[in-house]
Design a protein around this nucleic acid. Structure first.
Lengths: 351, 351
DNA sequence: CCCGTTCACTAGAGCGGTTTAGTAACCGGT
DNA sequence: ACCGGTTACTAAACCGCTCTAGTGAACGGG
């Protein structure tokens, strides 16, 4: 007598063995049927699927993983102080996109925030050796990145978000930061700006370096003498102090480009506090777009990219190489587009 | 041809059997030793631990979970449109706290963002039946919450963030929203405000209801006639339109309380756009604190709570009931404290 | 000296899947 | 009628770990 009544006794989860017994076939046949692989007739397959459905069967992931199969999850480890992460709309958007891409194959995302790269590497080691995940997503590619070699040696599929270049044999998904920075500078120069400052991110990050180089090259090409990049740690605090410093020195810039939307908003706050009119006396551009740039007043001109789509693409690439480790290749995503809002305009005449 | 044994020759992960062979004992003995349970002498235990260490052994989580043991992960499912989540500093902070608490017992956090409650419930069902997690964390408690009954029936440990009340037999971690709202109204009334508006969140959420009720009660007690709560969907867009509506009608409020920091910032933007001085003509209070409230100008007066600590506490409570399902009890956290910054002041004289 | 206990440890049965080797039936071609 | 090949299925090994039942030795009490 099966105790199907849901009084209080939760019915034990059915296994493929239960299904096999009920349908009158072997465990193996059930496994074939449920996984859509040859070895059973269509008639039997249908009966098995029907029984599985009726009994509300679900695979036991641990059992699957044990057989050497997939873990059904991929890992994302982020090495940033929790506070910084807290307000980066970028990551949240990326996360959503990743999950959208992963859930198509009902793969879960295992997320961990750690303090530094060392801890991050330790997590890669642990998760790989525990078979907890089928692959990794690596973000914040560094200039000389110790993670690349280690993840390669772990022999676990992985995708790097960022590049191009310097990520070893790992495939990457990247957007052209250089091209994007050039478009910003061209736009500002066309408005008449000649003193442009760049409040950059962590100099250890590859994309920071690439943006700084692009700005320098661009300045040379356009003959702008007074152009400077100042590194920060991406925090609102450093974004604010750097802005304050820039605005209080003589011959202050007429335009500032921020490497993140958060720092741009912080910079806008400083300008308001110091009584510097935006965009009258100062133009502000954010190198990243999100709700943040739109809710402040004036709304910020920003480099907009579809972070959600970026996440989806990363997920797809990773699932691809998990399925077939052969197809490692880099994927270039559309170059971010500059969305002009209210924070940019011609420089003051005196400038 | 498997590319498993190439020149690099990744050493196969050692199993307890390998350790057993090397030390010259049985698998069982190794298991006992590694899990710190009786059944082996101290001398043997030491030898086994040493060998495990030398061989760099790590438990295979799937194998453990299969034996009916823990999955080593807990689940957090958030049902909000991805875009909204993107900028809620609250969740990011909470996440960090959760992970800090969980990593103490090296439990992972499985995170999933879904579109609606129905999908959320489906995920609970699936994860529970797949033994993917050992417990759940439920956020955004609703007024009549269908999730409570279902999670109870799944017979999986779970903690509710929010309350008190209406979460069935599930333990909850909660802060006193009512008390907090009273403190805000008292503060504003003391400044002289009599027309106070409340841009609330989703009315389906219990905390929204509790705040609205607190405001109403408080208004009656203080004899304020012109007090109103307007529900929104928590998005910056509705926060902005609601603000615009409030500010453009005759007898507009002299103070607005926003249910989230994001909406407060959006409201501040609208005020700036409409030329309403803050705090000269309008005081703004955010019912949640984060970097956002500090980077804008003027910085916003906000209700500050330690979201990180909240996350840690939730994690601890959940791990507690996973370990011992007996100790279900509610945990009250400190009432949020009002941090006065630059966005509040006395109402205009005419008001 | 014998019996009962405790101790340290072994053997092996699961856990729920996947996968391989094996088998019996059937089919078409000569 | 015979052969080779395919199809549909079964039985059982296997993944790595946990945990129970069992074993032999040492020990202590009567």
């Amino acid at each position: 007598m099966t105790c199907r009544n849901e009084e209080r006794h939760t019915v034990a989860r059915p296994t493929i063995e239960d299904i096999a017994r009920r349908v009158g076939v072997s465990k193996g046949a059930v496994s074939f049927a449920l996984n859509g692989r040859p070895g059973v007739s269509e008639a039997t397959r249908a009966r098995i699927l029907k029984a599985a459905e009726e009994m509300n069967w679900r695979p036991h992931t641990a059992a699957r993983a044990l057989g050497g199969a997939r873990a059904g999850a991929v890992g994302l480890v982020i090495a940033r102080p929790a506070r910084t992460l807290g307000v980066e709309p970028f990551f949240a958007q990326l996360l959503s996109g990743l999950q959208a891409g992963l859930s198509a194959q009902s793969v879960a995302l295992e997320l961990l925030v750690v303090e530094d790269t060392e801890a991050e590497i330790e997590v890669y080691r642990r998760w790989a050796s525990e078979h907890r995940v089928d692959g990794f997503i690596m973000v914040d590619l560094q200039v000389k990145d110790p993670r690349v070699e280690i993840v390669e040696s772990l022999d676990v599929p992985a995708v790097v978000l960022g590049g191009p270049g310097r990520h070893g044999s790992l495939p990457s998904v990247w957007a052209d930061d250089r091209e994007a920075m050039l478009s910003i500078v061209d736009y500002l120069a066309a408005l008449g700006h000649r003193r442009i400052a760049h409040v950059a991110g962590l100099p250890a990050f590859q994309h920071t370096q690439r943006r700084m180089r692009a700005l320098r090259d661009s300045a040379r090409r356009l003959g702008l003498a007074d152009v400077v990049s100042l590194p920060t740690d991406f925090s609102d605090a450093e974004g604010a102090t750097t802005t304050r410093m820039l605005l209080s020195r003589p011959g202050r810039p007429t335009a500032i480009v921020y490497d993140s939307d958060l720092m741009a908003v912080a910079g806008l706050g400083v300008a308001a506090e110091m009584g510097v009119a935006v965009p009258g006396e100062l133009s502000i551009v954010a190198f990243d777009d999100s709700v943040l740039t739109r809710i402040v007043h004036p709304a910020l001109t920003a480099l907009s990219r579809d972070t959600f789509a970026l996440g989806t693409e990363v997920a797809e690439v990773l699932l691809g190489i998990i399925g077939d480790p052969g197809l490692r290749r880099d994927h270039r995503t559309p170059t971010p587009r500059l969305v002009v809002r209210e924070s940019t305009g011609a420089p003051p005449l005196a400038g």
